[in-house]
């Protein structure tokens, strides 16, 4: 299993899966603590209309227009949710439901109406991506990792995801203290003169960035699952934010690696010929980790009111 074939076929998807999982899990921690966990869900739904509009405007399936479209859609969705919540005096959940289902429906309709049969753009792809197809054809073995010429042929998703992950990590480290204070005690943060609203917006934008970069490689399911499951599991393990974030990164990585391996090789071990959906398996594994944490986690008990 560990050979040239592994480096070419399995290593890039595993790495991309891990990076995507980590990039989503880190902002997920803060969203979870702020009771905004479902923002990730909403954002990953509106990615579809975003990429469709990006495609229709640019006329190509190249990455950047679609990423821009997705990012724009995420921003529009966040603004709409906030606007509808205020004007209509609705609870955030209802406002979110209204916005993301409307935009998703619009995306599906646009997709059906426009001539996208010639290109690889469909709802299924947006939902569960195609992690398995991100292979590195130029690799001939572990030595290729040091070979500049072969490295030039890695799937473009890998460097893109790595940069996104780096930005998310960097911004989180940079804003660590203000983010932490405003997450736990907004009033205190305001009294300290921290820009609470801007911090909240920065967090959502960071989440949107992670979601947009990740959906292309791994699809929406992993994005939603990674926003919530690893942070939630970590939350049941510890009371300290720093530990929680590190644990969530660990759980995210574990989900991605185990999920990919089980999906790719599990059926073969059981004697079947085809592998199953890696995205689905990664989400499932993250759910199992959360279930374990909910049963055994040392800090699982609900706070006594």
């Amino acid at each position: 299993m560990i050979g040239a074939e592994f480096v070419a076929l399995s290593l890039p998807p595993i790495l991309i899966g891990c990076l995507a999982a980590i990039a989503c899990a880190i902002p997920g921690n803060f969203l979870l603590l702020r009771k905004q966990a479902l923002i990730g869900d909403a954002i990953s739904h509106v990615v579809l209309p975003g990429i469709v509009v990006g495609f229709l405007v640019s006329g190509t399936v190249s990455t950047w227009p679609m990423m821009l479209g997705a990012g724009g859609a995420a921003l529009v969705a966040v603004l709409l949710i906030e606007g509808i919540r205020r004007v209509g005096k609705l609870e955030p959940g209802a406002a979110m439901g209204v916005v993301f289902s409307t935009m998703f429906a619009g995306g599906v309709l646009l997709l059906e109406q426009s001539d996208t049969s010639s290109v690889h753009l469909d709802v299924q792809h947006a939902l569960y991506g195609n992690l398995e197809s991100l292979i590195w054809l130029d690799a001939t073995g572990w030595a290729s990792l040091l070979d500049a010429q072969a490295l030039a042929g890695v799937p473009p998703e890998l460097p893109r995801m790595a940069i996104t992950c780096l930005i998310v990590t960097g911004v989180t480290a940079l804003l660590w203290r203000p983010l932490k204070i405003s997450t736990f005690d907004e009033g205190f943060a305001r009294a300290l003169g921290l820009p609470v609203r801007a911090l909240g917006l920065a967090l959502v934008i960071m989440a949107a960035m992670a979601a947009v970069a990740a959906f292309d490689a791994v699809g929406s399911i992993i994005v939603i699952a990674m926003f919530i499951c690893p942070p939630a599991a970590a939350r049941l393990m510890t009371d300290r934010l720093a530990h929680q974030v590190w644990l969530s990164v660990g759980f995210a990585t574990l989900s991605a690696v185990m999920g990919y391996v089980l999906a790719g090789y599990g059926p073969l071990w059981l004697g079947f010929e085809n592998s199953v959906s890696a995205a689905g398996m990664i989400a499932t594994v993250s759910g199992l980790i959360l279930a374990l944490a909910a049963v055994l986690g040392p800090r699982r008990a609900p706070r006594v009111a």
């Binding site: 979870l32 009771k35 905004q36 966990a37 479902l38 990730g40 869900d41 959940g93 939902l127 569960y128 399911i221 992993i222 939603i224 699952a225 926003f227 919530i228 499951c229 939630a232 939350r235 049941l236 999906a263 085809n274 199953v276 959906s277 995205a279 689905g280 398996m281 990664i282 989400a283 499932t284 993250s286 759910g287 959360l290 909910a294 986690g297 800090r299 699982r300 008990a301 609900p302 706070r303």
Partner: peptide
Amino acid sequence: TRLSEDAAIGAVLSVFFGFGILLLT
């Protein structure tokens, strides 16, 4: 557990959906 309802909703939604996609494949 100490998780709030929105986190529980998100977790169930994504994991069940992911598992369903897995079964479809």
